[in-house]
């Protein structure tokens, strides 16, 4: 099975047995229905146990599953009348970023996402979803346009990070990311960001300064990919599983840190198992948050976003020897 993840083997083995047993029962005309029912129950139970407690490294595998829906698939499934727009008007059309205008229900919105390829050729054209500066500037152009026409902005985050290449550096990779962070902070329209797969580094954050940041259940989001962290910290990229554990990259961790507002559930086994169901979950969530944000005016939206990010961080005041809570309270005070 090409779609199998390593930890899914026991379940798939069992499922295989059930199929064989069914075939046998038909072929020989023997009634195994009781055994089959028992095995199916067992299979279901195993699945429930496995998927309710995936380790960070296992989630990383689900998030990187090659069949996991991409931004374009979600856009097509969630929105109506999507018109894809292209180019940064400065240099190129970076295919690692897609976006355009569409309707969420009755509401026109601007939707933008990182776009991984669906096969090797597509991946090469899209730089595996890792944008160059022109990609970030394309996204910024769409967002500026949304701000002008008072359209909410919805972004899908799904990238290992900004593309590490010489031409990307020459054209100002740092500046492109930094500018997006600053400009996103200042837009007077609602911004909702959804981490759908892997959120890695500044390349992810460049679409991530939203009033609400949501994450799919098995998505991951961190400052550097677990593989990168392992090779820097322990000089061993194969220790990615340990790094995934240490870096607290899961939706649950990020909800605890106050970095995200909501975890969007996935169909059992992961988003790749059922695109329509997953798209439905995301759509419900987007509509709920948009409804809440649309009552705020431009100034309130900017303030809401500012406060969200202003309060993120854990530090202490040396003399006070204060714990997390005290220092977070301190951070909250200083922003008022």
């Amino acid at each position: 099975m090409g779609n199998e993840l390593p930890f899914e083997k026991p379940i798939n083995d069992l499922r295989q047995k059930i199929t064989e047993l069914k075939a046998l029962s038909e072929e020989k005309g023997i009634d195994f229905s009781e055994e089959i029912a028992r095995l199916e129950d067992k299979c279901k139970q195993m699945e429930e146990e496995l998927y309710s407690e995936l380790s960070p490294a296992q989630k990383m595998h689900v998030a990187r599953h090659h069949g996991r829906p991409t931004s374009l698939e979600f856009i097509e499934s969630i929105f109506d009348d999507f018109i894809e727009l292209h180019g940064d008007r400065l240099y190129a059309d970076d295919l690692a970023i897609v976006g355009g205008i569409a309707k969420l229900g009755d509401i026109p919105v601007t939707v933008i996402g990182h776009q991984r390829g669906k096969d090797t050729r597509d991946n090469i054209a899209r730089f595996f979803g890792s944008p160059h500066p022109e990609g970030f500037r394309k996204a910024l152009r769409f967002m500026t346009q949304a701000n002008k026409f008072n359209r909410p902005i919805i972004t899908f985050i799904d990238t290992k990070g900004a593309y590490p290449g010489n031409t990307a550096e020459e054209r100002g990779q740092s500046e492109a990311i930094a500018r997006n962070l600053r400009e996103m902070a200042g837009f007077g329209v609602p911004i909702i960001c959804v981490v759908i797969g892997e959120g890695g580094s500044g390349g992810a954050l460049a679409l991530g300064v939203g009033n609400r940041v949501l994450m799919l259940e098995n998505a991951i989001y961190s400052v550097i990919s677990p593989n990168g962290a392992a090779s820097i910290l322990w000089k061993d990229a194969s220790k990615a599983a340990e790094a995934a554990e240490a870096m607290k990259i899961t939706a649950k961790d990020l909800l605890e840190f106050g970095v995200i507002e909501e975890i969007i559930p996935e169909p059992r086994g992961g988003a790749h198992r059922d695109l329509a169901v997953q798209a439905g979950y995301i759509k419900n969530s987007l509509e709920k948050h948009l409804k809440e944000l649309r009552v705020l005016n431009a100034e309130q939206l900017v303030e809401d976003r500012y406060n969200k990010f202003r309060n993120i961080g854990h530090y202490r005041l040396a003399e006070a020897e204060a714990g997390n809570d005290a220092s977070r309270a301190e951070a909250a005070n200083s922003s008022q």
């Binding site: 500044g202 400052v223 550097i224 961790d253 990020l254 993120i312």
Partner: peptide, 25 residues
Amino acid sequence: ARMQESILSLMQMAKTSAALSKFQS
């Protein structure tokens, strides 16, 4: 960014840039 604080380090990029947005505008 400081890897040992993972996502919290990443968010400092947004926090500082948002503060600059206010200041510069």
